[in-house]
Design a protein around this nucleic acid. Structure first.
Lengths: 239, 239
DNA sequence: AGGTGTCTGTACGCCAGCGTACAAACGGTC
DNA sequence: GACCGTTTGTACGCTGGCGTACAGACACCT
């Protein structure tokens, strides 16, 4: 395990004014999130909220048949565990670490306490949740209408935006289970991108060589999610 | 236009204790929602929130190509316009009346005011929003993995639960655009259900004859959404 | 260096749903 | 009662993605 990155690498924590941040800071606990770890499982009671800094977490639903599909991903722009303040303390979907890395976790009660102070943190959390809904609803539409290749591009771009480098550690098998498609479908789509010089693939490691190429192939869904996140979290201090 | 039903037909309004309800009641305004009316369009600023009583509203996204897909529906169990209190005051998706009927509308500022009192209304709204997210994420998974017939069953059951009778006023064309599939796909699926004696179809009118038959054919997604809504909104007074 | 398990590439038949086209049936209107 | 626009039914070829099967390639381990 390497040294934990600063909490301020998480956009929500970074957006807090000093006073509100101080309250939380003493309760934030750095954790290392290994690939595949399940932060919460369907129906299970949440203990902690997680603010990822370098990790990426996938929210997805696993069907009775074993098939699965991601509804949204959470990285350094957000928080895992919104049902702690939204209510219910659990969800039918699960949260699994998709890219290993660091996060800060916060005891559920503390988060709720801060939420109920109705300060900037509450506003931030609600706006982030709204952005998350956009991501979910866009995923629904994208699943319906767009090709595997387009969805792969969307997924790569969204992941890329949450990471410091252009490298992803990710097998095709894993991507397939996120998107809810066959592994072979990813092989084919990734092969196309590789041949076009957009990415380079090497046994569990993807390097994005030509980001513009991805953006050219991606469907509109990426832009919608991105723009909405920006809109909701940039002007958060005003109004 | 027939006489407006009581506000208490909306589950959120009905769950409010007298004191909180009184505050809102003076500002609630009955409105008639005709089929196809757009309550808000992508990116437009919201003026009002709507509490449906007999109407059903569909939240869906229309792509650049014209293709569309519903991410969730809202009936007497919920509220249209959550971005008023979640933040941002608009969404990339639109809200369109899917079943004509009545609703009560509330000026956005008044809703926000009530939300910020941090009473039971706030808890209700947040919990409902959480249920809505479940619906969206389940829709994403369902779009990915289930057949048109299964999705039609899910859609019929969800609509049925929001209506007093077993009759839906709904063309196949409209259902198709909600589910984001071809009209012919609905014709075929509905034909199967009709031959099986589960529904009867008559030029824009569907009667559900055998609810159990629908529940037998539907995918798990219906149950997940239903159970989660119940869990979140039943014990809302406690804790 | 060789072995082993994981990951990636390729192939092939299959089918649900798509796009397109057109016919039939219904129901409201004049 | 005839007309006409809307809604529903049917047909047909096409294709993207699925299920299955297997071979090659890579990285790690001993």
């Amino acid at each position: 395990m390497t040294a934990a990155p600063s909490p301020s690498q998480n956009h929500l924590l970074a957006a807090l004014p000093a006073a509100e941040y101080e309250f939380l800071a003493t309760h934030l606990e750095p954790v290392n999130l290994p690939l595949g770890e399940m932060l919460y499982e369907p129906g299970g009671q949440l203990q902690y909220a997680y603010f990822p800094t370098t990790a990426i977490v996938s929210l997805h639903y696993v069907m009775a048949s074993g098939a699965s599909a991601e509804s949204a991903g959470v990285g350094n722009e957000g928080i895992v565990g919104i049902s702690l303040f939204m209510g219910g303390n659990s969800t039918p979907s699960s949260a699994v670490v998709q890219t290993a890395g660091h996060a800060y976790r916060l005891e559920g009660g503390k988060l709720l306490q801060e939420f109920n102070r109705a300060g900037l943190m509450q506003r931030l959390l609600l706006r982030y949740t709204q952005a998350l809904m956009t991501q979910m609803s866009q995923t629904a539409a994208c699943n319906r209408h767009h090709s595997v290749e387009q969805q792969l591009c969307r997924w790569l771009l969204l992941s890329l935006d949450r990471l410091p480098s252009n490298q992803l550690v990710m097998t095709q098998e894993l991507i397939a289970s996120m998107l809810g498609v066959r592994r072979e479908g990813i092989t084919e789509a990734a092969g196309n991108l590789q041949r076009a010089g957009v990415i380079s693939y090497r046994r569990g490691h993807i390097a994005v060589l030509d980001r513009a190429g991805l953006e050219q192939r991606v469907c509109e869904c990426y832009g919608v999610v991105k723009t909405e996140l920006k809109r909701l979290l940039c002007d958060v201090r005003y109004r």
